[in-house]
């Protein structure tokens, strides 16, 4: 069984999901991913602009999923990690590649992959996963 998600909602997030475009506060210099609507540090004094992250980082922590949510059952076991990007922000994502290299601190880079499908007749959701290098 797979879940159905909102097509417009997915579409609005393509820039972040496909290309890792976050934002940066011009007032305090903090980089955010996913992009924020306002800078939580500077509030009304903050000024946010788009910021292209490079897509490289290291594993901050990880877990292996054996009991998956609907739509992901056929991928078990798979690795979900918090990735610390070189620019600072931490992102949640799946780690792929040679999982014998899996370790806290291991280097990863963003790769374009299929995340899930809305059934056999729905849209295909693409995004970034993290390949061990």
């Amino acid at each position: 069984m797979s879940h159905r998600s909102s097509v417009p909602l997915a579409w609005r997030r393509f820039e972040a999901r496909y290309r890792l475009v976050g934002n940066r506060c011009l007032t305090c210099g903090t980089i955010y991913f996913p992009p924020k609507a306002i800078c939580p540090k500077c509030r009304r004094k903050g000024k946010l602009e788009k910021y292209q992250l490079k897509g490289e980082g290291k594993i901050h922590t990880y877990t292996i999923i054996h009991a998956a949510p609907s739509g992901f059952e056929k991928r078990v076991p798979y690795c979900i990690a918090i990735i610390e990007l070189d620019e600072g922000p931490k992102v949640l994502g799946e780690v792929v590649g040679d999982l014998t290299l899996l370790d806290i601190g291991a280097r990863v880079r963003a790769v374009f992959r299929k995340i899930y499908e809305d059934g056999e007749d729905g849209i295909i959701h693409y995004g970034l996963k993290w390949e061990l290098v």
């Binding site: 792929v96 790769v111 374009f112 299929k114 995340i115 693409y126 996963k129």
Partner: peptide, 16 residues
């Protein structure tokens, strides 16, 4: 190809 790869993902990685 892995089950999370298809022609679009292969095309994107090659194009990058």
């Amino acid at each position: 190809a892995g089950d999370d790869e298809d022609t679009a993902t292969i095309a994107v990685e090659a194009a990058k």
